[in-house]
Design a binder for these strands. Structure first.
Lengths: 153, 153
DNA sequence: TCAACAGTTTAGAATCGTTCTAAAGAAACC
DNA sequence: GGTTTCTTTAGAACGATTCTAAACTGTTGA
C-alpha cells in the first residue's frame, strides 16, 4: 500500500482505459493511497485544491463517475443530499453517523433470509446501512454492555 | 382498512396534533387507505391534482415531513435523486428496482453479526436495500432455481 | 517533428429536487 | 365577530449535480 503513488495511479488509469491526465492522476493518487475513503465530490475537490492541484468541480464529478464505472469506486447512497464514493469496492456495509455525515466500513455483517427477487429481476447488490445517533445529549458515558447486541432486527 | 376514510384520516391528524385542513386530509386519505405505499413528493402532488385537490408542491413537502415527524411515514433513502416516503412504518426492508425506481417492502430479512457501534453512538436504525437489476436484456425467462439463494453476502 | 484527431477540462449556465419567504387564507379561541 | 395562531401558497432561492461549447492536451502516425 505504500507503493510509488505515481506508478500505482498511472497503472489504475491505464487499466481503466483512461488517459493519465494531470487531474486524474492527482485525484487517483489521493483516492487510492491504500486507505479506505468515503468522499463527496465537494470534499475531493477541496482536497485537490489544498494540494494545489487545479481541477474544476465538473472534472471531479466526471472523474468520480469514470472511476465508478471502471470499478475503482463504489457509490454509496445514505444521504438524500449528497453522494459518497467509497474506495473500498469489496463486499462490506456501513455505519452512517447521521450527525456528522461520516461513513465507516463494517465487515462481516450477515444478511439472511432474503426473499426471492420478483420474476425478471436479479439482485444486483445488497446494501446495509446502520444509522447511528449520538448516545445521549446529556453527555452520559457509554457503558459497554448496552443494547445493540440484539443484532437481528 | 376499509373504514370511513374521512374519519380515519381526521383521526390520524388529530392524534398528530395537526389541524385537519383540506390539503392534509386529502393527502392523508390517499396515503393511509390501508395500502403500503412508497411515494415521492412529486408523485403525491400529481396524484392529488388528479383527484382535483388543489395543493401546492410546497405543502406536499411540508405535509410529508410533518407526517414523518409524527411517525405516520418513514423516509427511505435509496436514490440520490429523490426521497421516498413509506406508509409502512414497521420493521421491514426494501427491494429497489433500479430501472423503474419502484420500491417494494420485504419482510423477515435477518441481519446478524453487526459490530458494536463506536463509543458515544447508538444504532438508530438498520436499513437493508436490495437493489434489483433486470435479469437479462435478451428477455430470457427466469428459471426459478437461479442464484439469489445465497442469502448471505 | 508536427499536424490532426480524439479525448479531456473548464467556466458558467442550466437543471432538478427541495427549502425558504413573506403574504394571503383558514382554523381555533375568546 | 375579532383576534390569534397555524397553514397554504407562489415564487424566489438553494445546493448538488449535470450540461454545454469552447479551449486544451495527449496520442498517433506521417
Amino acid at each position: 500500500m505504500r507503493e510509488r503513488p505515481y506508478k500505482h495511479a498511472l497503472d489504475l488509469l491505464q487499466r481503466a482505459g483512461l488517459r493519465p491526465t494531470k487531474q486524474r492522476l492527482a485525484l487517483a493518487r489521493f483516492l487510492f493511497d491504500g486507505h479506505d475513503r468515503h468522499v463527496t465530490a465537494e470534499q475531493l475537490h477541496a482536497r485537490a485544491l489544498e494540494d494545489r492541484v487545479s481541477v474544476s468541480l465538473a472534472t471531479v464529478y466526471n472523474t468520480l463517475h469514470q472511476f465508478t464505472r471502471a470499478g475503482l469506486l463504489r457509490e454509496v447512497v445514505v444521504d438524500a443530499n449528497r453522494s459518497y464514493f467509497d474506495t473500498n469496492t469489496s463486499e462490506h456495509h456501513h455505519f452512517f453517523h447521521e450527525k456528522t455525515g461520516e461513513l465507516q466500513d463494517i465487515r462481516d455483517v450477515v444478511v439472511a433470509n432474503l426473499p426471492q427477487p420478483p420474476a425478471g429481476a436479479r439482485i444486483a447488490r445488497v446494501d446495509v446501512v446502520v444509522r447511528l445517533d449520538d448516545t445521549d445529549e446529556s453527555g452520559d458515558v457509554v457503558t459497554h454492555s448496552g443494547p445493540a447486541d440484539r443484532a437481528d432486527i
